[in-house]
Amino acid sequence: MSAAGLVFAVQGVNPWTALWKIFGGSFCRSFGFFETMTKAIPLILISAGLSIAFRARFWNIGAEGQLLFGCILATGVGLHSSSLPSYCVLPLMFLAGATGGALWGTLPALLREKYRVNEVISTLMLNYIAAEAVQYLIYGPWKGKTQWGFPYTDNFPPAASLPVIPGTRIHWLTLLIGLVMACAAYFLLERSSMGFEIRVSGENPEAARRSGISPLRVSLLVMGLSGGLAGLAGTGELCGVHHHLTYPWAISSGYGFTAIIVAWMAMLNPLWCIPVSLLFAGLLVGGDAIQTSLGLPFATVNVFNGAILFFLMLAEFFRENKISLKRSASAGA
């Protein structure tokens, strides 16, 4: 914390003022808090999913791509939904989003179990493929007729818009889905036999194999769930915030990567992902408060976030490992 404070002190701003601005701006003011909630929605969904995958020691770095591929399928439904009855547009879009994310997630699972392809590489690379696919669609076949040649798809029909809490941008349906999914993920991991299989495969793959747990089945399962939740998060962003498909970095703004940190800080416990997501969303939202009121550059916010994370990790290390100072001389420490 003091190092983070130093970042501000160097720029001639009282660190306490800055901290008050960040957390006050995102938690204490009603509108800041609503924005924090809005930002936390995708983080909750994705980090809960990642917790499942990480518990099975499947290093899924590809939530970003899974989110985007979910968005592609959901957009496909949204753009061609005019003939559908309005009440089934949103469920279908969410279904398509989850399916897209799950498909994009199970691909590296297959690659790992069948061809021994390292999943860190494959999930990371699939992020880029999904992003390029979105770019192709928004500049090519799906470029909107009503968007003056800009790379956005046409806006979705009103039936594909998620309701928001009036006066805020919180699409509460996705929030509800997120909370339910986080709880469901917790019960799956901690209270079901399937969760037991997942945990055993993660903690002792050899024992898992000997006791007849199929690695393929577990990998497909965790990645289907992890990707599916990322796809749901993407669909929520599409229908709740953007209402059309556009540049991949505008759709996601790095949620898939931030959620990795969130999942680890929540110690891979889906329930803990909820408050940690809120904390991180608060850091993101509070970031513009210190720009507007203290006139600090944008990069300061990132440095501050990085410092907090680094020291949290450090704290974790010292908590898990006992450090003892040894001296060769007789004097004890």
């Binding site: 962003e237 970095w249 505008a250 513009d288």
Partner: peptide, 12 residues
């Protein structure tokens, strides 16, 4: 001024 504002965050 507020710099580096993603499109989706401009409303906030």
């Amino acid at each position: 001024v507020v710099e580096s504002v993603p499109e989706a965050d401009s409303a906030r």
